[in-house]
């Protein structure tokens, strides 16, 4: 079990490196001063400001969002018993994207008071509600007589996503050049919105989601045998479906709302864990959280340093860094097992 130390090493490295030069010893002093171990006179105020108000929140946000997306992906794959399931399948991502596009392009239609009250939070709130609404519609379409059909939900998710794409297309058509460009950047994702309030909101939501997911591990293992089998093993399948959807909705919704669309992590982090440690959800869920968080923090480290003083959208990097990793694992596993 080397995963823990690797995750810690990535986090420390991500704190030590950035566009703004801060010597590693200074990083330690500043962090020490933060918890009262080092006298505040020994540190440079500006370096401390950069570390505390920019870099630390960013690393924490990356860890939370990466963990949330990866666990949501693992839950979806378990629920749909389908290896290509990703957190976007239940419509959260596309619903959030449509709402974000609406705010970016038609932000002027919102009442001035609402815009003033919410400020920078208008887009995240709208995106979260858009994502939640889309997921609830998908769930509603797929539920009859109190039973949710996973198969119908899959198709309803695709239908709602297509509808949202049409809406985004229409908004893109009436958008100005600048709005289009903002929309493009939003769909590529960024952790640039990180500040302490965002970390608090996202961290709180995703922590709750992770805690709830622990109790889903055993039922999901039973579900792998089939819905009827799970029922006969004593699992309340409908209740489990409701909780899985709620957890995925919360984790993905809050991530997309504040960071835009960050692809790949939710799909591939759980698969990497399955290839390394097997499909038992009791291991899969926490390990996916750890790997997802680590991958996203690493990707963001590259995103904010490789073209400094500018920064690359993180969606480009999650795929660029994660895909080779995934392909190597697939090749190594090829022939050894038939599970996937």
């Amino acid at each position: 079990m080397t995963a823990g130390p690797i995750a810690v090493a990535v986090a420390v490295f991500a704190l030590a490196v950035g566009a703004f030069p801060i010597a590693p010893s200074q990083v330690l002093s500043i962090l020490g001063a933060g918890i009262g171990l080092v006298a505040p006179e020994a540190i440079d105020a500006q370096q401390a400001a950069v570390l505390w108000s920019i870099r630390v929140p960013r690393v924490l946000l990356g860890a939370a969002v990466g963990a949330g997306l990866a666990v949501a992906g693992a839950l979806m794959q378990g629920l749909f018993r389908n290896p290509i399931a990703d957190p976007g399948l239940i419509g959260v991502t596309s619903g959030a994207a449509l709402a974000a596009a609406f705010v970016i392009v038609l932000g002027a239609v919102f009442p001035g008071k609402l815009v003033r009250e919410l400020g920078n939070y208008l887009l995240p709130f709208a995106a979260f509600f858009g994502g939640a609404l889309a997921a609830l519609i998908v769930k509603h379409v797929a539920t009859r007589d109190g039973v949710t059909s996973v198969f119908t939900m899959l198709l309803a998710g695709i239908a709602i996503s297509a509808l949202a794409s049409a809406g985004i297309g229409l908004l893109a058509y009436i958008a100005t050049d600048t709005q289009l460009r903002l929309l493009t950047f939003w769909t590529l994702g960024s952790l640039g919105s990180a500040n302490w309030s965002v970390v608090a909101i996202v961290g709180f939501t995703i922590s709750i989601a992770l805690i709830l997911s622990v109790r889903l591990a055993a039922p999901l293992n039973a579900l792998a045998l089939g819905e009827f089998e799970a029922k006969h093993l004593g699992v309340d399948v409908q209740r489990m479906k409701n909780i899985v959807l709620l957890v995925a909705l919360a984790a993905v919704g809050v991530s997309v709302a504040f960071c835009g669309m960050i692809g790949f992590i939710g799909l591939v982090a759980p698969h990497c864990v399955r290839l390394l440690c097997g499909p038992d959800h009791r291991m899969l869920l926490p390990a996916s959280a750890l790997l997802g968080g680590t991958l996203l923090v690493a990707a963001d480290l590259v995103a904010r340093t490789v073209v400094a003083p500018a920064e690359l959208p993180i969606g480009i990097l999650t795929a660029l860094l994660g895909v080779p990793f995934f392909v190597v694992l697939l090749r190594r596993q090829h022939g050894q097992t038939t599970s996937g």
Binding site: F20, V50, I54, R55, L182, G192, P309, A310, P313
Partner: peptide
């Protein structure tokens, strides 16, 4: 001169590093 990227997508730390 060094480029800080697209005006609407500035990186706070990148700019501060200058």
């Amino acid at each position: 001169l060094p480029k800080v990227g697209y005006a609407r997508q500035l990186s706070a730390e990148g700019v501060l590093a200058l």
